[in-house]
Write a protein that binds this DNA or RNA. Structure first.
Lengths: 137, 137, 137, 137
DNA sequence: GTGGTCTAGACCACA
DNA sequence: GTGGTCTAGACCACG
């Protein structure tokens, strides 16, 4: 099972799926070419409607994260190149960072600590990536 | 002007106001006892519906950030310190950073660029703060 | 009424709406900032379900053609800059052209005629654009 | 090899085969009376399901493009000329071109570039045709 | 079996 | 009033 849904969070269920598939792809839990659980299977697993899963998959496809072939399933794409312009990509990341900065501000966490926390989480992220590569052999 | 609304962001307008009033309080732009702009004034300022501002103020009052006195307006309450323990606070921030890291991965933005982007956005953030504080002198 | 649906064509209804809104935007029938018919209104107009229209609008938003603000409606964006890379954009157009070329081949229309037909349709397109600009004054 | 499948395109695989067999017939790659590859051979060639090839052949037979003889395979029928009148044919192509023009507009690709892209894709198309015909000699 | 589309209707969030 | 999300269930296209 790939995803866990928090029905209390207020975050749309389909977006939770999107985020968790992206996370699984980023850390290497699933790799290019790997099939995702079928829409029906994931819906049953998470006890949600098929349509909700289908919507998540459609969103993932429109972002070029997965590829879906009618009748055979959904597969993870290789992250060859984002179709978005560089400026757009850093713009989006800047928005996300701005939100984090405001949050840090509210949590009264000083800049240097935020920066070192980023370094720490980056290291943790790459460790997870290695963990997922090893067991495959 | 306390708040700036980003209609593109998808974040509810009333929540943007809530967050920005909190931010303004945290940075000292407004202090305990200071009056907030009237609902009508802020609505005209931001060119949004009065209901939206009223809702933001209601939310702020329910969180005990502000206090409304019948007939005279809304005022900032004191109580600046975050009640959360340090570990809880950085834990929350870590979650937010993890999400950003995953996003950066899918946007194919390398670690060093992410880090320098953080520095850049932090500088922009503090510049904005100064802009707000200057007119007060 | 902006769209006409052909239920016989086999083309998904939501895609027909997407195409027709794009066409209306391209020819200047609707302009940047103009509101689109509400989801409910268009659904009633076309006698289809609200969700189908909503899906079309969602697709249009994900392609940056329109902007939707909760509670106030959907508005045409100004076509400032496509977020896609230049290479991706011409790649997509190349795919569309390849399909046309194959079709021309099946219809046994020689290359020079295809090329002059393109010129002709381009002229017709720009004429339509002018037509839509004039009546506004 | 008669067909090349583009799994990314979203066009049903069986339709791609239908179109490409028609194209092969139109360009003279295969001629009246020629045998088509067996269902099994083509399926292995293209790494797709036999059912998919069978469906394509069924479609082609129902359109009288090919003929199946029990036990000996499928053969191309004659009857090359398009039955449509010239005006109808260019009318259909005009519709397709209009759609491409609208797409080019949204992709912000200027007219001259669209025209030169057409020339480029036409060349690529004819190159592919030659590649197919060469091995025949 | 797979995913895609559409309908009908409920409920929520926002202005 | 606006759009967004989710469910339930039907039907189609594809492999």
């Amino acid at each position: 099972m790939i995803a866990r849904i928090d029905f209390q969070s207020g975050v749309p269920v389909y977006l939770q799926i999107v985020q968790q598939v992206k996370a699984a792809a980023a850390t290497g839990l699933i790799r290019a070419g790997d099939p995702l659980p079928s829409v029906r299977a994931m819906a049953e697993d998470l006890r949600i409607n098929r349509n909700t899963v289908a919507r998540a998959y459609a969103e993932l496809e429109s972002e070029s994260v997965i590829e879906t072939r009618q009748g055979s399933g959904c597969f993870l794409k290789d992250g060859g190149a984002s179709p978005l312009r560089k400026s757009v990509r850093s713009g989006r990341l800047a928005e996300a960072l701005d939100a984090v900065i405001i949050q840090a501000h509210h949590l009264q966490i000083p800049d240097p600590e935020l920066q070192s926390l980023l370094v720490e989480r980056l290291e943790a992220f790459h460790l997870r990536q290695k963990d997922h590569q090893a067991p495959r052999d």
